[in-house]
């Protein structure tokens, strides 16, 4: 595959906290325009991998390139150029608590494009808020006044503020009710289709994996043990992957997915 089509390339990544080694020789490629699901047991370092890629965690060893640029020890002004091109949704939303939802969305735009007309800025923030499925009256609310699901949507609106090419989502559907989670999946998919996004999606939600992911990367034993479509992964015959996708929850997710397809076919 041509280098141009690989948005994120990780080679030989090693991360450790004191004695505890989280990653050792981890390799991963994320292709342009795909939704890559990242799964793994609790504590296998999914979030640490994301933090390494976006430069919040300096790895001990290894090479990480995003958009063809090495992001490990990057100069500050070069790092800003790359940060403009991605958006990150943290687990809890990580909204700035002293700003309203709409002001939160404006922060990245103001930071990177300080000369933008304030009226246009307000308009952009408005349609971003509505686009992520928040009610229009959520704009002037403070994060403390929002429910968990609304906080995630507001976080997504902020992550999408700059129309990024690459989107990092850390467990976006955790803690949402099934309807909210399904709506969030649909939203991610529709935004990805519309804006041609590449999505790096950390999740525990099997329904999300089946519904929206093009490929899934499995992290275990400190590295990515397999990447592929779910069918390819299941065919691999690895005990953990088997357990993960064929356990009771995995089977339920498959059933839901097939029921959905059947219905769509009947329509």
């Amino acid at each position: 595959m041509a280098d141009d089509d690989i948005v994120i390339r990780v080679r030989g990544l090693r991360n450790s906290f004191g004695e505890q080694v989280v990653h050792e020789g981890l390799d991963l490629d994320v292709r342009r325009g795909e939704i890559l699901g990242v799964v793994g047991g609790s504590g296998t370092g999914k979030s640490v991998l994301m933090r390494s890629i976006i430069g919040l965690q300096i790895p001990d060893e290894g090479e990480i390139t995003v958009f063809g640029e090495n992001t490990v020890d990057l100069e500050e002004n070069e790092a800003i150029e790359i940060r403009k091109r991605w958006g990150v949704l943290f687990q809890g939303g990580a909204l700035f608590s002293t700003l309203t939802v709409a002001e939160n969305v404006e922060v990245p735009i103001k930071e990177f494009y300080p000369n933008l007309d304030p009226a246009l800025l307000d308009e952009i923030a408005s349609y971003k808020v509505v686009m992520t499925g928040l009610p229009a009256d959520a704009g002037p609310k403070y994060p403390a006044e929002l429910s968990g699901g609304m906080r995630k949507r507001a976080g997504l609106a902020r992550a999408l503020a700059l129309d990024p090419e690459l989107l990092f989502l850390d467990e976006p559907t955790a803690g949402l009710d099934p309807i909210g989670a399904a709506a969030f999946d649909e939203l991610t998919l529709s935004l990805q289709r519309t804006m041609g996004l590449t999505v790096f999606l950390i999740t525990h939600d099997l329904d999300s994996l089946y519904a929206i992911c093009d490929r899934v990367a499995v992290i275990a034993d400190k590295k990515v043990i397999a990447v592929g479509t779910i069918d390819e992964l299941v065919a691999l015959d690895h005990p953990w992957i088997e357990e993960y996708f064929k356990g009771p929850r995995g089977r339920a997710a498959v059933a839901t997915q097939e029921a959905g397809k059947g219905k769509a076919g009947a329509d």
């Binding site: 309203t100 709409a102 002001e103 404006e106 307000d122 923030a125 408005s126 349609y127 971003k128 808020v129 509505v130 686009m131 229009a136 009256d137 959520a138 704009g139 002037p140 529709s190 289709r193 519309t194 804006m195 041609g196």
Partner: peptide
């Protein structure tokens, strides 16, 4: 087709939103 889709999304999101607390 893609751009049309984008337009539809933006059009659907055109609602008045209050930005700041009055």
């Amino acid at each position: 087709a893609d751009a049309q889709h984008l337009f539809d999304q933006v059009q659907a999101a055109d609602q008045p939103v209050v930005i700041r607390v009055q």
